[in-house]
Amino acid sequence: MSLHCRIGGLGILGPGLPGWAASAPILAGATPWQGGELALPPPALLPPTERRRTSQPVRLALAAAGEAVAAEPGGTALETIFASSNGDGAILGSILDALLALDGVAISPTQFHNSVHNAPAGYWHIAIGSVAPSLSLGGHDDSFAAGLLAAATAVATRAKPVLLCAYDMPMPPPLDRVRRTETGFAAALVLRPAAGEGAALTLRYRAAPAAWPAPADALDALAAGNPAARSLPLLRALAAGRTATIRLPLLEDAHLELQVAP
């Protein structure tokens, strides 16, 4: 059974990838990727009081999501799916430290409510004043594939466009030793029903293993260091406007088979 949908607005934020418009020539292969620092803009969509409270993963996710819906008709009414493997490692580490304090546990209440995995989703819906349903997923190395499957399923069953935002930040010590993530990265895509406009995406679940392909260049190699960057083969095909078949691992023994047609 295959799922069919179309790709609408896109957003990206990564090292040397400062937004879709600026990154499209790099993704398409017309301009070489130079790498660089990841710049996380404070989310202008939020009121100043909320903006100050936002952590790096929230800023990362909201930047990519905001870009993807900027040109999308009815973007603020979109159902949303946020996918992240690591959540907010900095807040997690800070709370775990606080639990060991010898002079009594004193967790910051703001940090605690920001520690929920759906914090970026919560801030997104506050920022744009949206009451649409929202889902937040994990997925270890395969969180992008998990998000894409859930988003395509939502489009197929509810016949309405959905915003998918995959994001992950590196873990601070000591979690960085047990969960390696090299750089921050976020990708956001609006998926539309198959009858709409945009590049066509067909998705099939296959109960057979698929190895992640060896990187062809330095940009491809980002995918090994951040689960959200596993969106790169799809994003590069979309930027280049080329047909592609992509196998995204989902668990050790299965994968999603994607077919993209411009």
């Binding site: 937040s136 998990a146 109960a207």
Partner: peptide
């Protein structure tokens, strides 16, 4: 089982 597996975390 060998079907897709998803984890939801919405508090």
């Amino acid at each position: 089982l060998r079907g897709p597996a998803l984890v939801v975390s919405t508090a």
